[in-house]
Amino acid sequence: MSTRGYIVIALILAAITALEVSTYYVDFGPLFLPSLLIMMVIKFVMVVSYFMHLKFDNKLFSWLFYTGLFLAVGVYITALATFQFFLR
């Protein structure tokens, strides 16, 4: 990727962050939680794909990393669920 490309990505990330912070000031209503989570995931994936080059690199790297990531999400969400975390 070119320097320009990186700067564009960074600008998008900055814009999303601004949007995230705005949820603190503006009432998003029922969209509050889902929109925050979606923005978080977008930022995460963008950094991983572009800044960490995972999108352009060998697929094996993606496999190794995302295995860890999804395993973590899976076991910890399950564990929190047994604490009735999501029902509170």
Binding site: L71, G74, V75, T78, A81, T82, Q84
Partner: peptide, 17 residues
């Protein structure tokens, strides 16, 4: 990775778990 709580059956996990 999906079976760990079988060590905790007697701990009051709740019937679904």
């Amino acid at each position: 990775w999906g079976v760990w709580a079988h060590h905790m059956f007697a701990s009051g996990l709740g019937p679904v778990s």
